[in-house]
Amino acid sequence: MEILMNKTFAALLLFGMLFPTMAMAQSKSSIVPVMTGAYAPAEGGCNAAAAAFIYIEDKSIAANKTIGTVTSAKKDGASYVLDVLWIEAGADKADGDRDTVRIEVKDDRSFYFSNSASERTLMRWCS
């Protein structure tokens, strides 16, 4: 019984030590220097409505059920200006809406997001 408890404790301790490193192993986005994954407005937190989430992926950006193909990215100081083609789920590229998205990087887990339809909003990493 004591051996089983020691092994269980050791496994829990090891898992607890590995978890932070597993989170830090998340890859950086190739679009902008933030971690890939889901972001939500800082004031609403990660419990905000799903429509408020923005997903930074390796080659694209998404918001709710809309995928944004990044057609170009330009660095402007600490900001990035992305030309994005938004495509709703189930639609094709011909139905896409062109947009300019500005991402002002605060740190590797947060950024300010703005585009033609929204104000400058601080987004924090949730994944």
Rank of each mutant, 00 (worst) to 15 (best):
M1E: 13
M1V: 15
M1C: 14
E2P: 13
I3F: 15
I3Q: 15
I3N: 15
I3W: 12
I3Y: 15
L4M: 10
M5K: 14
N6V: 15
F9Y: 12
F9R: 14
F9Q: 12
A10C: 05
A11C: 10
L12C: 07
L12W: 10
L14F: 12
F15E: 06
F15I: 12
G16V: 06
G16M: 05
G16N: 03
M17H: 14
M17D: 11
L18F: 09
L18V: 09
L18Q: 09
F19G: 06
F19R: 07
F19W: 08
F19C: 11
P20I: 09
P20S: 07
T21R: 12
T21V: 13
M22H: 14
M22L: 10
M22N: 09
A23R: 15
M24Q: 15
A25H: 13
Q26R: 14
S27V: 13
K28H: 13
K28M: 14
K28Y: 13
S29T: 04
S30G: 01
S30Q: 01
S30C: 00
S30M: 01
I31V: 13
P33K: 08
P33V: 11
V34C: 10
V34G: 12
V34R: 12
V34Q: 10
M35A: 14
M35C: 13
M35L: 14
A38H: 12
P41M: 06
P41W: 08
E43F: 08
G44F: 08
G45Y: 02
G45A: 04
C46V: 09
N47W: 10
N47G: 14
A48Y: 06
A49T: 11
A49L: 07
A49W: 09
A51Q: 12
F53C: 04
I54Q: 01
I54R: 02
Y55I: 03
S60E: 01
S60G: 06
S60C: 02
A62H: 02
A63H: 05
A63V: 01
A63I: 01
N64Q: 08
N64H: 11
N64G: 04
K65G: 07
K65V: 06
I67K: 06
G68M: 03
T69M: 01
V70L: 02
V70C: 04
T71R: 06
S72R: 03
A73M: 01
A73E: 01
K74V: 06
K75E: 07
K75C: 05
G77Q: 10
S79G: 03
V81C: 05
L82T: 00
D83W: 00
V84K: 00
V84M: 02
L85M: 06
L85Q: 09
W86M: 01
E88Y: 04
A91G: 00
A91E: 02
K93M: 11
K93F: 10
K93I: 12
K93D: 08
K93T: 10
D97T: 10
D97Y: 02
R102S: 09
I103V: 11
V105T: 09
V105W: 03
K106W: 02
K106H: 06
D108C: 09
D108N: 13
R109P: 03
R109Y: 12
Y112I: 07
Y112F: 11
Y112N: 07
S114K: 05
S114D: 04
N115A: 00
A117Q: 07
A117S: 11
S118Y: 08
S118R: 11
R120H: 04
L122V: 08
L122D: 04
M123D: 04
R124F: 08
R124I: 11
W125H: 14
S127F: 04
